[in-house]
Simulated assay, not measured.
Amino acid sequence: MVNETVQALTIAGTDSGGGAGVMADIKTMQERHVFSAAVVVAVTAQNTIGVQDFMAMPKKMIDEQFASIADDLKIRACKTGMLADVPTVEAVVKNLKKYDLGPLTVDPVMIAKGGARLLSEDAISTVREKLLPLADILTPNLPEAEELAGMKINDHDQMIQAAKKLQSMGVKNVLIKGGHQVESKESSDFILLENGNSFWVSSPRVDTKRTHGTGDTLSSCITAELAKGSDVETAIRTGKKYVQATIANGIQVGHGHGPLNHWAKIDKEGDD
């Protein structure tokens, strides 16, 4: 009976405002009936208006957190979020190689909703070269996909091209989020699977600025579903439905880019 309960791990930074990062990941996994553990790699002073400051954790503390979790828990899937700088990325990569933490979802967090940079410029190449080859699923938004793939993305054809380019870097499955295409009435994500199959998942746009933590929530929902044993496609479709529900059934918190409603429910999981 030891460790029978499904467990997942988030490797990310905190959000003192509660809407993104580790806080959003834990809330999401809990709502999806998965126990969430966390390796905190950075601490932010943050609210719905923006990021006022942040500090990366010392490498030793990152290593100790990984060791503590691996020594006691049974992690069935994990995800990365904000990784701050080169030493942090390298520490996380080292520990992901050292411990069996199940399939890895990489959410390449680079810039916060308010515009603050959460990944240093020199760390982008480290993520590209060392972290992406470990990823089972990569979930960039359009600006992040452009940065990692080294190309502009202005339409659906270029989203497909970028996904193929990212997959060639060692990523098994790629999900490029289309939420930044604001001229569209729908938010359309492109998914390229390891087996070569691909598909689009779309949802109607909701007229709201309460979308803080959307990427964290999607990637942590996918991670929770993978931990429960779902296949990649089902996990992605469930994640998309869950995020849509958290936006559509909004809550009123803060003066800026407000957080999602993490206790939102979805009727069916993984279906079209």
Results as ranks from 00 to 15, higher is better:
Met1Phe: 11
Val2Pro: 11
Gln7Tyr: 00
Ala8Asn: 08
Ala8Asp: 02
Gly13Thr: 07
Gly17Trp: 01
Ala24Ile: 03
Asp25Pro: 14
Asp25Arg: 14
Thr28Ile: 00
Met29Asn: 12
Glu31Asp: 10
Val34Ser: 07
Val34Ala: 11
Ala37Leu: 12
Ala42Leu: 08
Thr44Glu: 00
Gln52Tyr: 15
Pro58Ser: 09
Lys59Asp: 08
Met61Ile: 01
Met61Ser: 14
Met61Lys: 06
Asp63Gln: 15
Ser68Phe: 14
Leu73Lys: 05
Lys79Trp: 01
Gly81Cys: 08
Ala84Trp: 10
Asp85Pro: 01
Thr88Val: 15
Val89Asn: 03
Val89Ile: 05
Leu96Lys: 06
Lys97Val: 08
Lys98Asn: 02
Tyr99Gln: 08
Tyr99Arg: 00
Gly102Val: 01
Leu104Trp: 02
Val106Phe: 09
Gly115Pro: 15
Glu121Met: 10
Glu121Asp: 11
Thr126Tyr: 09
Glu129Tyr: 12
Leu131Ser: 08
Asp136Cys: 08
Ile137Lys: 04
Glu147Asp: 09
Ala149Cys: 03
Ile153Arg: 00
Asp157Gly: 15
Ala163Ile: 08
Ser168Trp: 01
Gly170Leu: 15
Asn173Tyr: 08
Asn173Trp: 11
Leu175Thr: 07
Leu175His: 13
Val182Leu: 15
Lys185Asp: 12
Ser187Gly: 13
Ser188Tyr: 14
Ile191Met: 08
Ile191Tyr: 02
Leu193His: 14
Glu194Val: 11
Asn197Trp: 03
Ser198Met: 03
Trp200Gln: 05
Asp207Met: 14
Lys209Cys: 04
Thr214Ile: 01
Thr214Pro: 01
Thr217Leu: 10
Ser219Arg: 14
Ala227Gly: 06
Gly229His: 06
Asp231Phe: 04
Ile236Lys: 05
Asn249Leu: 01
Gly250Gln: 15
Ile251Gln: 04
Val253Leu: 10
His255Cys: 10
Gly256Cys: 00
Gly256Ser: 02
Gly258Ser: 07
Gly258His: 05
His262Tyr: 11
Ala264Asn: 05
Lys265Met: 13
Ile266Gly: 03
Lys268Tyr: 11
Glu269Asp: 12
Asp271Lys: 14
